[in-house]
């Protein structure tokens, strides 16, 4: 039993490290197509983690959420994004990352910061997976950093969805998932959000003829020159 547990623990740790690793790679990625692929990979890893926890803990509702994650974040949303990229001819777009070195160093310090912040949570929990809470909190912050550092609307969507991933991950590792109703509700919201993002791409493109959000700068508090 002990060996099984330690094996299980190590597998979960490995998957968690991989999820965090994909967050880092996404942060430094400047090609939008590759970014979407990485996002899909993260979704699949997440689903694998959830499925592993579900099988070992023998909890059927986690299997449902694992399937949901795989279907939604591993397959459906990446496909939708790829379709949008093709439709808009964005597959060669480079979303230049300014100062990648500083960015990644900043990201590394965010990870350390997350370990510090989640200490009380880790001390309190009795679950096998408790040490991963810091990794999930770090992924949350890295998703935010991704949105801050990238300029293309597609990257923002990926960042947003990566944050959702991280939240879901933290729920799985800290409490073995939220109650099923809540998870279904969240999944529904994510799905609707993905569709609305698609609608937005067309609207943004129609209005500024590009998906570079830096050019969305008409509404400011500074005086306009007339």
């Amino acid at each position: 039993m002990d060996t099984l547990n330690s094996l299980y623990g190590q597998a979960v740790f490995l998957l968690a490290a991989l999820v965090l690793f994909t967050s880092f790679v996404m942060l430094a990625q400047s090609r939008v197509t590759a970014l979407v692929n990485l996002f899909a990979l993260q979704g699949i890893l997440l689903a694998a983690t959830t499925a592993l926890v579900a099988i070992v803990q023998n909890s059927p509702h986690l299997i449902i959420s694992a399937t949901l994650t795989l279907g939604l974040k591993g397959i459906l949303i990446p496909l939708l994004l790829h379709w949008l990229i093709l439709r808009m001819g964005l597959h060669r777009t480079i979303d230049e990352v300014k100062r990648p070195l500083q960015l990644l160093l900043g990201a590394a310090s965010l990870v350390v910061f997350s370990y510090y912040v989640t200490l009380p949570v880790v001390e309190l929990s009795e679950l096998e997976t408790r040490n991963i809470i810091a990794a999930s909190a770090a992924s949350l912050l890295l998703g935010m950093l991704l949105m801050i550092s990238h300029r293309q609307a597609i990257s923002h969507v990926v960042g947003f969805m990566a944050m959702e991933n991280a939240l879901f991950f933290s729920a799985v590792v800290s409490t073995y998932g939220m109650p099923l109703v809540v998870e279904l509700g969240v999944a529904f919201d994510v799905m609707v959000a993905a569709v609305i993002f698609g609608v937005f791409f067309f609207q943004i493109r129609e209005s500024i003829d590009s998906l570079d959000v830096d050019r969305l700068s008409r509404l400011t508090e500074t005086e306009e020159n007339e």
Binding site: L167, T175, Q203, I204
Partner: peptide, 29 residues
Amino acid sequence: ESVEAAWKYFILCGVGIAQALFGTILLYF
């Protein structure tokens, strides 16, 4: 202008509300 406003609303409130979900998870924990 309205598309820009809606995008800003969506992204900012989306990110903001994601923090609230993390808070809810901590509460549940």
